[in-house]
Amino acid sequence: MDQLIKQVEQWSIDKGLDKGNGFTQYAKSSEEMGEVAAALCRNDIDELRDGIGDVIVTLVILAQQNGMSLQECLEQAYGEIKDRTGVMSKDGSFIKQADL
């Protein structure tokens, strides 16, 4: 995974995306999330796999544009959720205790 992230970061540098606009990159991430939703609706596992990969690529670049790494973002998020308690809703969504 580390090697793949480094390759994406280098690709971003080679294309000049590392110096791009963060909001534009955020919009690209949102667009890719739409493709994930479409794949889920169509039950298309290959497109879902591609879409998830595309989302990760856009997030690697967004983090890079803001002087962060995907790992440090994930570590921060995990630090916030690791001890979170809550319940699973009927539709399969996790509801954190603070929102109950």
Rank of each mutant, 00 (worst) to 15 (best):
D2H: 12
D2S: 02
K6S: 14
Q7G: 15
Q7N: 15
V8Q: 03
V8A: 00
Q10M: 10
W11V: 02
W11N: 10
W11A: 11
I13W: 10
D14A: 01
D14C: 06
G16M: 00
G16L: 01
G16P: 01
G16V: 07
D18S: 13
G20D: 02
G20Q: 12
G20Y: 07
N21C: 15
N21V: 05
G22K: 11
F23P: 06
F23V: 15
T24D: 10
Y26I: 07
Y26A: 14
A27R: 14
K28N: 03
S29D: 01
S30T: 06
M33S: 12
V36R: 04
A37R: 14
A37G: 13
A38Q: 04
A38L: 12
A39W: 09
A39G: 03
L40E: 14
C41Q: 15
R42F: 11
R42L: 15
N43R: 05
D46A: 09
D46I: 10
D46L: 11
E47S: 05
E47K: 08
L48K: 08
L48T: 04
L48Q: 06
R49H: 08
D50Y: 07
G51H: 00
I52D: 08
G53S: 13
G53R: 09
V55T: 09
I56C: 12
V57Y: 11
T58V: 01
T58A: 07
T58E: 04
L59G: 02
I61M: 05
I61V: 10
I61N: 09
I61G: 02
L62H: 06
A63Y: 07
Q65I: 14
G67D: 15
M68R: 15
Q71K: 04
E72P: 07
C73W: 05
L74G: 01
L74W: 02
L74T: 02
E75R: 02
Q76I: 04
Y78N: 06
G79F: 14
E80T: 12
I81E: 15
K82S: 07
D83S: 05
R84A: 09
R84I: 09
R84H: 14
G86P: 11
G86I: 03
G86Y: 02
S89W: 04
S89D: 14
S89N: 08
K90G: 01
D91A: 00
G92W: 09
K96D: 12
Q97P: 13
Q97D: 03
L100M: 11
